[in-house]
Computed example of a mutant assay.
Amino acid sequence: MRRRARELAMRALFAHTQGGVDLEEAFQHALEEMEGEEALGEPLDQEAVAFARRLLWGYKARQEEVDRALKETVEGWDFAQMSKTDLTVLRLATYEMLFEPTPFAPLIEVAVKIANRYGGEHSRAFVNGVLGRLYRRIQEGELKTVPKEA
């Protein structure tokens, strides 16, 4: 269920940042699209929608901190050079790694799957590499996170 919620948040953030669509409008449009696709996957229940909303608005509230951590982690790329899909996945995953109690392993795994589904040929490896470096920075105490669920 959380994978679909993360996809919902990613699709809404992408529309907001790339299309200039109001955040709430982008969220509602992405939700309607995904509800129309329910035959392709598990349905979005109220809990999943609430989780997607929390990720999306959480990122927007901490965008400066998240983007700074991401810029300091990505090696050899700036945001203008990156695939906008990859950047959107990375922004939400970075927010979740730093500010949500989600354990790291499933979070990274799902982010890589979403990048693979929506991104280009190299998105899976790129997103995995960046999130791996971010995880190492957290493990080394360079970045602080909220306590994680067991």
Rank of each mutant, 00 (worst) to 15 (best):
F14C: 01
G58W: 04
A39F: 13
E32L: 13
M34W: 07
A26D: 01
E7P: 08
A48I: 08
E7F: 06
E7L: 14
A48G: 06
L13D: 03
G19L: 02
E47W: 10
A26N: 04
E32D: 11
G41E: 11
D22R: 02
L31R: 05
R53L: 04
G58T: 03
R6D: 11
E25V: 11
R11E: 06
E38L: 06
V49T: 07
V21G: 00
G19V: 01
A39D: 15
D45Q: 06
H16W: 00
E47R: 14
E64K: 12
V49C: 05
G41H: 15
A61P: 02
P43R: 12
Q28L: 13
D22H: 04
H29V: 12
L23E: 03
G41W: 12
L31P: 11
L13R: 02
R11D: 05
V49F: 03
E35C: 10
E25M: 09
L31H: 03
E37L: 15
L55M: 10
M10I: 10
R62Q: 11
E64M: 08
E7A: 13
Q28H: 13
L44H: 07
G36S: 10
L23D: 02
Y59H: 06
E37V: 11
Q46T: 15
Q28N: 11
Q28T: 10
Y59Q: 03
E33Y: 08
D45I: 06
E7H: 08
E38N: 12
E65Q: 13
V49M: 03
E65R: 14
V21W: 00
R4A: 14
E32Y: 07
L31F: 05
M10S: 11
A5Q: 11
L55Q: 11
Q28K: 15
L56I: 03
E47C: 08
D22V: 00
P43A: 13
Y59I: 04
G20S: 03
E33A: 10
P43H: 12
E25T: 15
D45H: 14
R4P: 08
F51E: 13
D22E: 15
E32V: 13
L13Q: 00
A52H: 04
K60A: 09
R54E: 15
T17M: 02
F51H: 13
G58R: 00
A12W: 02
P43T: 15
A50S: 05
E33V: 13
L8W: 10
M34R: 14
Y59G: 03
A61W: 03
Q46K: 13
P43Q: 10
E38K: 14
R6K: 14
E64S: 14
E35L: 08
L40P: 14
R11M: 06
L8C: 11
E35A: 08
V49W: 04
Q63T: 04
A52T: 06
E47L: 09
M10P: 03
K60E: 07
E42R: 14
Q46I: 06
H29C: 06
H16Y: 01
F27V: 03
A26G: 04
G20N: 01
E25N: 08
Q46D: 11
A15I: 08
A9Y: 00
M34E: 13
G20K: 01
A50I: 00
E64A: 11
A61T: 02
L56A: 04
L55V: 07
